[in-house]
Write a protein that binds this DNA or RNA. Structure first.
Lengths: 152, 152
DNA sequence: CATGGTTTTGTACAAAGTCTAGAAAATGCC
DNA sequence: GGCATTTTCTAGACTTTGTACAAAACCATG
């Protein structure tokens, strides 16, 4: 059996910030509560990488909209539904990536900055056999980088 | 500029469990204290993936050998010296991999199991340009897998 | 065997994330 | 619309991973 790059593709659903958020959420089986819509508006305004902490801060910038538990619940829900991709590169927190197109990441270990690598800029060949009884849940490729002058 | 797979190579140092651990540690600039030797003996007996928690439990199985702080200090030290590779795939804890040869990982998201993929079984081509002013600190490729019958 | 730098230790602390029980909001049905 | 049922939200306590710190122990060297 051979695997192709297409196997990296996850369930991809794209929320269009120009269209009505509530009906798009309903379309993927998510009840569009006020909190979820507000969180979605922030995340899907443009492709971005945010931690739960950052989402919490932005959502509640002008008064209390959603609690910490709701942020975690909502991010987890969106990720399960394929609207967000969890990016695990920093042991201290999870990033949620609202760019659901196939792509990979640079992670600057000095600054904590996460940036996208378009899928076309990297090709994986000669893919390994998956262990028996398992199926792919996505492939993550992370280029860890360092600022060239930083002490290390 | 083109990158080759060799760029993935990190500082690689291999501890041989058959040889004297203390003198091998000394050779890489690590003072071989009793705690460090004991921790090294566990980690380098064979290639394995362990969390700090697991190391703590195994080290102190037959009486107190090392404290939590020492485990973290030692794992961090070994990783900085290139004896261990930190593997960040699970948001809840860091794995330390005593296989320092170039390789990648399967991570079973259902079981939390981490297994190796030999370097030869995967080839990366058409590598992306690194952002200006940065240098590589290693490339991680993680195949996230799921047990095929698991609910999801 | 005295000296002084390095390690280790216990404890306190910090931060990310989970859990829970009750309040509030959404939904479905008449 | 009104009302009952179900789902979601909230505040805060709790858990877990990991770090900070200061005192005690260790150990190489003269």
């Amino acid at each position: 059996m051979t695997y192709t790059h297409a196997m990296n593709e996850r369930t991809i659903l794209k929320i269009d910030p120009q269209q009505d958020i509530a009906s798009q959420l309903r379309k993927v089986g998510i009840t569009p509560t006020q909190q979820r819509v507000q969180i979605a508006e922030i995340l899907f305004a443009r492709p971005r990488h945010m931690s739960a902490d950052q989402v919490l801060a932005v959502v509640n910038r002008d008064g209390p909209i959603a609690s910490k538990a709701t942020i975690y619940n909502t991010l987890g829900l969106f990720a399960r539904k394929g609207l967000l991709r969890e990016v695990i590169v920093d042991p201290s927190k999870v990033f949620y990536d609202s760019n659901t197109a196939v792509h990979h990441h640079f992670f600057n270990v000095d600054t904590g900055e996460l940036t996208d690598i378009p899928s076309d800029d990297l090709i994986l060949t000669r893919m390994p056999e998956l262990p028996p009884g398992t199926e792919s849940a996505g492939i993550d490729v992370i280029f860890r980088i360092r600022s060239r002058d930083a002490a290390h």
